[in-house]
Amino acid sequence: MNRETTLPGHEPASRHHNPLLLACLAPATAFFTAFWLLPAVLLVALPAEKGWQTYFLVLTDSRYMWSMINTTLLSLVTTITTLLIGGAVGIYLARRRFAGRQVLLSLLTAPLAFPGVIIGFFIILLGGRQGWFADLGSALGMGRVTFAYGLTGLFLGYLYFSLPRAIAAYTAAADAMDPQLEEAARVLGASRWDITRDVWLPQLAPTTVACGAIVFATAMGAFGTAFTLSSKFEVIPITIYNEFTNYANFALAASLSITLGLVTWAVLFFARVAGTTSSGA
């Protein structure tokens, strides 16, 4: 029978470390409780003040339901487009070495520093009532062409906001791919499509899943860009903002926030499961 033995006057190290670990955890625990756990509990409890049916208004009221559908579909289209363009550009930049490559990569990822409001302003400068396209259309006799304040403007704004993240992620992932696998496939007579399907896609799958989840979650909760551009197309963050700011309907705003959080959390959860599965495959 083995027993823990200690020298006289010495205690096990774990007994000395436990108080220190607790002291280190205390600030983090207090911060987590005060600024996440408590607000989350209050948010979940708030709709109950007006009855349990408030939790399900997003399913029973057509206006809120369509706002959620609009947001989800726009986020899905933005995510798919971002992954396709970002993947193509990222892989190209990772596999090609040319003069000015680093400058180009820096320019492509520069929008990471811009908030959503600035990106919305960029879209307005292009497709707003006083934008470049409006001036061009007027000069060509086509009238003042605008697209900034509806679905097209929102999509372009979301895409502009998301692409730099995808390009940076795919460039790093493509740089880390094992070139020997591709070379072996070429020696065995694999076509370009076979290499893309059997070599590139499996190695880039974790990046695709993780990047797609982040882009989708960001698009679902985007406020600055939507606030600037969504005068003709309502999305759920603007609906929530209107409910608690313009109408002081805090219970309904909380209910919509819970729904938005659940949808986004579900996507992130399944993306994590899928990423774990693809990494272990």
Score class of each variant (00 low, 15 high):
60 T>A: 07
83 L>G: 05
41 V>Q: 03
144 R>F: 15
262 L>I: 00
40 A>Q: 08
150 G>P: 07
145 V>R: 13
280 G>M: 15
166 A>R: 02
129 R>A: 15
28 A>G: 10
141 G>D: 03
53 Q>N: 15
143 G>K: 13
109 T>Y: 03
113 A>F: 08
123 I>L: 01
42 L>T: 07
133 F>M: 08
182 E>F: 03
215 V>F: 01
157 G>L: 00
20 L>D: 11
116 G>R: 06
228 T>C: 14
15 R>S: 15
161 F>E: 11
67 S>R: 00
274 A>Y: 14
141 G>F: 13
151 L>F: 13
115 P>S: 00
91 I>D: 01
173 A>M: 06
12 P>R: 12
89 V>E: 02
73 L>K: 08
196 T>P: 14
116 G>F: 05
56 F>G: 10
151 L>S: 08
279 S>D: 09
85 I>D: 07
72 T>Y: 13
84 L>I: 01
12 P>D: 08
78 T>I: 11
99 A>M: 11
265 W>M: 03
1 M>R: 15
102 Q>D: 15
143 G>P: 05
235 V>Q: 04
111 P>H: 00
11 E>R: 15
242 N>H: 14
110 A>H: 11
37 L>W: 11
106 S>C: 04
251 A>E: 10
160 Y>A: 10
58 V>D: 07
206 P>S: 13
64 Y>F: 10
205 A>S: 08
249 N>Y: 07
144 R>L: 12
273 V>I: 13
37 L>D: 00
256 L>D: 03
101 R>M: 05
187 V>F: 11
171 T>P: 04
182 E>W: 10
125 L>E: 07
127 G>W: 05
